[in-house]
Design a protein around this nucleic acid. Structure first.
Lengths: 130, 130
DNA sequence: TTTAAATTGTTATAATATAACACCATGTAA
DNA sequence: TTACATGGTGTTATATTATAACAATTTAAA
């Protein structure tokens, strides 16, 4: 489970927005949406995003510069992320597969090195777009 | 194997630079380095980078916005990439593991969906930094 | 309660990436 | 040989993503 964190006002506003969004949100789209709530500057958004990522409430989709709420209750979740991305409609889903996360968590490279964290992005066409 | 492509002048200049670099290069570092060869604008760099990525000669490290030459001779390589990233010294290495690529190439999600492409980034500490 | 750590608000700016347009080179089909 | 499609080039301008620096305030722990 996530360690419980009490979110600050800005963090809560931004988390709620991302959590309700049906799709990942970009930083400046977030900024635009929360301006009426008094969050006026990019830095306020980025600081909240950084913290939310750090505590595992949201994830960043690196290839899209977008943020999505974590809907995975596994405890490793902020350090072990996997997503599927549709290259046509840009639908993005967090993958939660026990076998995948087990495989990757135990992966060792040629030098026997293990890693503390990973991010995996799969690309393809979703059901609708196929 | 990669399909053979004859690189254009700009593509060749930029590929050579990345290929010789001991570490991934960022677009504007590339731009700076090639200005004496007549490549003056960001777009010239980005266009060459896009093409080089497309044909699999280089890969983009999404979490770092940086580009690295492909040193993997496997044919799936431009669609199936894995990297290890040291979070201290930022040393980045392309992982070539037959079992990993086999596992991921065959991965199916809950709906039985297979993906045509993936990018995996592992984070940890390299030998030196441990 | 005082002190350290985290968060906030703000302005400015850095870093990354694309739009739009005119032009040029090359291959190929009529 | 012409025409025309495709892809690359050069250019200016601009959009998008992200951080630096600093002062003030809030929060939580000792």
């Amino acid at each position: 489970m996530h360690k419980e964190h009490t979110l600050t006002k800005n963090q809560q506003i931004i988390f709620d927005l991302i959590d309700k969004s049906p799709e990942p949100m970009k930083a400046y789209a977030i900024l635009f949406s929360v301006q009426k709530k008094g969050i006026k500057a990019p830095l306020q958004v980025y600081r909240a995003l950084d913290k939310l990522v750090e505590i595992g409430k949201i994830h960043k989709i690196e290839s899209r510069n977008a943020f999505i709420a974590c809907h995975n209750s596994s405890c490793q979740v902020s350090k072990a992320t996997a997503f599927s991305i549709c290259e046509i409609c840009e639908k993005i889903t967090e993958i939660s597969s026990a076998s995948l996360s087990k495989y990757l968590a135990n992966f060792k490279d040629k030098d026997g090195m293990k890693y503390s964290k990973y991010n995996l992005e799969f690309f393809g066409l979703c059901k609708k777009c196929r």
